[in-house]
Design a protein around this nucleic acid. Structure first.
Length: 614
RNA sequence: CGGGGUGUAGCCUAGUGGCUAAGGCGUCUGCUUUGGGAGCAGAAGAUCGGGGGUUCGAGUCCCUCCACCCCGACCA
């Protein structure tokens, strides 16, 4: 590709409103162009980057038996009604009505269309196992797109779907993906950690996320520093060894005046007790799942009605984990949404914010959920549901009860590892991939059954596995850059070679050599970006640094005088100690080919075979 | 959805009630220059996000709508 003809202009200055390094560099390097919040066009360089990454994804998924298909972005509502997600998912799914008046949805993911395919084409145990995958656009109307390609609304995802007749088969395909994902990220030069994760809207039982650790991430993950232990989990589901409270003889419930003590910190200081003796209350309002078969109008009406106040009780030295709370609540009823309650809503249930207690809260519309520590412990300090007063000697069972008991505490750094008890560490991270054991939820809902050896009808056992291509590109950019610009690993670089003609107007010879080398490299099948523009050398160097293609070849009067073509690796500083490298013109194609092979070998040798670890 | 911020030429910015909206980058023309974003001369490019209002006068103040960014809620 000749740069004189390339669409997209590089920029010296960072566009306003970029906070992530990858966002800034991808914009400045003319890789992407923002069309609206979370919606991007990919310019030629960006598109080639995406295709390189896609090629890696295809290669590794095919290697574990994947067959590429293509499922649609526009989907009939029936499919989503069958799975029930039409009723469970809120505004994140965009819906529209086609000209015939049919409800339609834009694909957020493709479990439903997979079910549709499977229903049609898989009937017998002989048709299993199978693995299908595609690279297709997803639309998720995210309320808060941010940081360039890190969090967008429209994006291409590699998603695969495994189909099995047995749970052992699912386990095998799940493990295959687990290892394949590590190979994919290794090939992209991206360090990741696999962590246990929440199943969220996907449903299913077991799930892992592949996390790229870094400040640009929004997730927090916890992990055990002990390599042999290896426990790691998203904060949303992370467990930890909780201190077991000593059960004391129950003391009587008594009110104490605690003027102006609304927070746990204030109360514990005022009463001179440790926060872990206080019972903390956190209030939420849960919106319930729409009953199946409801029209959208009925759903809108239900918005106001189908809500319940949730009062969570946990020790004062712990933070509440909303995901754990939601999961617990889901065992009682379907939760579509959980949001913090407002003071008026809390008051309506008879509680006083700041002095709240679970005592006397069991009304029709209020659900009390208690952490297991509250049950195990005794004689808690809690609110009196009366402005300016708390109580001592608050005890579960005697003074109050909960509809649901479980673990609702958030794990944090320093908490003991649930496996080995060592202090865990935490880091922020970006989710670049996930794998889910879906089980039979979708196959049962969407009538995907097969006949087994004994002639019995059984639901197909499914798994689903995703990697966001654009987000992956952004993470690679986050990982591989310096003050001058991007530094792509050769495996994903839009071109393997950046050829710069540094010939001035009075140096037609050098220009001719550059043109010839460009043609020779192309003829040899080497991907080359040729800077043939009429610009000064310095200008071209800056652009080449910004764009970040790994191998740079430079031809000018000076290089010819020094023996031919100057070779340089992007990202390797050309200090006084490292002498410049020149290749004879006749050798350039050969040497370049060898250099590409060497760089590819470097990547290849970094590809690990990571064994599955639950 | 809540809080904060920003909208001025393709990009980055200045302009804080008063003359024809200013500069840099980029673009175009010519000359000159050619190993780390050169120099000179000239040119084009803006209904100052939209609408409404206050005022003799609004890019500037007020209202309103929209868009984008950041934080939170949210999503994964």
């Amino acid at each position: 590709m000749k740069m004189s003809r390339l669409i997209g202009q590089t920029r010296k200055e960072a566009p306003a409103g970029t906070s992530a390094r990858s966002h800034e560099l991808l914009l400045r390097g003319a890789y992407i162009h923002q069309v609206a919040a979370g919606i991007f066009s990919y310019l030629p360089l960006g598109q080639r980057l995406m295709q390189k990454i896609s090629a890696i994804l295809r290669r590794e998924i095919e290697a574990i038996g994947g067959q590429e298909v293509n499922m649609p972005v526009a989907q009939p509502a029936d499919l989503w009604q069958q799975s029930g997600r039409w009723y469970k998912i809120g505004a994140e799914m965009s819906r529209f009505i086609d000209r015939k008046g049919h409800d339609m949805a834009l694909a957020m993911t493709h479990e439903e269309t997979t079910g549709d395919l499977v229903h049609q084409f898989i009937q017998s145990y002989r048709d299993l196992p199978r693995l299908i995958y595609h690279l297709q656009t997803k639309w998720r109307d995210d309320p808060r797109p941010r940081a360039g390609l890190i969090r967008v609304r429209e994006f291409v995802m590699k998603d695969s779907y495994s189909l099995d007749s047995s749970w052992e088969g699912l386990e095998q395909q799940y493990r295959n993906h687990y290892s394949a994902y590590f190979r994919i990220f290794d090939r992209c030069g991206l360090p990741v950690m696999a962590v246990l994760s929440d199943t969220g809207m996907m449903g299913g039982s077991i799930a892992h996320e592949f996390m790229y650790p870094g400040e640009v991430g929004e997730d927090t993950i916890l992990f055990c520093p002990d390599k042999d232990c290896g426990y790691s989990a998203n904060r949303q589901v992370a467990k930890f060894q909780k201190p077991v409270p000593v059960k004391e003889p129950l003391s009587p419930l008594e009110e104490v005046a605690t003027p102006n003590c609304k927070s746990i910190a204030e109360v514990s200081q005022f009463l001179r007790v440790e926060p872990n003796h206080c019972a903390k209350m956190v209030f939420f309002v849960a919106s319930l799942t729409y009953p199946e078969g409801q029209t959208r109008k009925q759903q809108q009406t239900q918005e106001q009605n189908g809500q319940k106040l949730v009062a969570a009780v946990l020790p004062g030295n712990m933070e509440l984990n909303e995901t754990k709370l939601t999961t617990l609540l889901n065992s009682l009823f379907g939760v579509r949404e959980l949001r913090p309650a407002e003071e008026a809503e809390i008051a309506a249930a008879g509680a006083v914010a700041g002095y709240a207690s679970p005592v006397g809260l069991q009304t029709e519309d209020c659900i009390v959920v208690a952490d297991e520590l509250i049950i195990a412990g005794s004689n808690w300090i809690g609110g009196a549901n009366k402005e300016g007063f708390h109580v001592r000697g608050l005890n579960y069972g005697r003074d109050f009860e909960a509809q649901q008991v479980g673990d609702i505490c958030a794990a944090a750094a320093e908490h003991p590892c649930p496996n080995c008890g060592k202090k865990m560490e935490s880091t922020k991270a970006v989710e670049v991939g996930n794998i889910f054991q879906l089980g039979t939820f979708y196959s049962e809902a969407m009538d995907c059954y097969f006949t087994d050896e004994s002639g019995q009808e059984k639901p197909i056992i499914m798994g689903s596995y995703g990697i966001g291509v654009g987000r992956l590109a952004a993470c690679i950019a986050e990982q591989h850059n310096d003050e001058d610009g991007l530094i792509w690993p050769i495996s994903v670089a839009p071109y393997q070679v950046h050829l710069l003609s540094l010939a001035g107007a009075k140096e037609p010879e050098a220009e001719k050599v550059a043109q010839q080398i460009y043609r020779d490299l192309q003829a040899a099948g080497i991907e080359v970006l040729f800077d043939d523009r009429e610009e000064r050398p310095g200008f071209k160097f800056k652009d080449a640094d910004l764009i970040g293609i790994p191998i740079r070849l430079m031809i000018g009067k000076r290089s010819l005088e020094n023996g031919g073509v100057e070779y340089r690796l992007r990202g390797r500083k050309q200090g006084k100690e490292t002498p410049k490298t020149f290749w004879p013109v006749a050798d350039v194609v050969n040497r370049t080919g060898m250099e590409i092979a060497r760089l590819e070998e470097e990547i290849q040798s970094a590809v690990r075979n990571v064994e599955y670890r639950a």
